[in-house]
Amino acid sequence: MPIDQLASANPPHANRAIVEPAIDLSRVGRLLFTVAVAALYVFLLAPLLIVIYASFSPDQANTYDISRASLRWYRAFLDSDSFVSAFKFSVMLALIASVLATVIGFVTAYGIVRFLGKKREIGRSLAMLPMMVPHILISLSLLLLLTQLPIPEMAALVIGHVLICLPFTIAGITASLEGVDADVEAAAYTLGASRWVVLREVTLPLVAPGVLSALIFAFIISFGDVYIALFLSGPGMTTLPIEIFSYIQWESSPVIAAITTVQIVMIVLFGLLIERLVGLRTAMRL
């Protein structure tokens, strides 16, 4: 990246320390604003917290009696073949899809950042294509393709998940690559290193946190997806969200709360890991 472009990426006014509150409301106004923000946080988190709470329920009816908390629904989850196999299947699918999306994402991001020059913005926008079409359209089209071509259903599911993960991995890794000082690579070239050696010894170690967080992010997206799997799941290939969806269409049981709690804990841990690696905001940058 040329030096002048680097400079414009960080304009001098990006220093946020001097931001003044734009609405310098009276004390009452400020209080109201704080209350509104607090209420919004309650709104955002209540449905998740209630699920965690309900998962320790002692009986079927979600009695909110914490003194009789029990782990029976976690045992029920582990004893249920359909949920355990759906969980395993989702983990496997998410692993395959996220690794593929990260590898293709890295290759693409490297191509965009290092070789597209002025056409970089066009390349970046085109890479976002799967995000701009509704996901149901992607999965229905793949389902139609399945009926016409001899593609295994599993492959269609993997391709669908790779497609919805790619915009995120490409965006994340592009951001990481742009953060690599071009002069460091130039120095390595000057010292006689080949392109491959520079990539392996200089660039890759520098963007490793970004690549790893893209991988985790893709895993989360694949694991939580319902719209691709809704049309492409088949017998023996049901993802966890689809298994839960078909179950709660008919009945509600705290066993679902237990499974979702496991999922929430897993995702919060992954999220904290991304935060440690590159910061969630960078990983989310699109």
């Binding site: 939580g224 979702t260 929430i264």
Partner: peptide, 16 residues
């Protein structure tokens, strides 16, 4: 965090 849990988890939260 809620965003990352997926649509099903959040919809289920409202059912509960």
């Amino acid at each position: 965090a809620p965003l990352m849990t997926g649509v099903i988890v959040r919809t289920y939260g409202w059912i509960v």
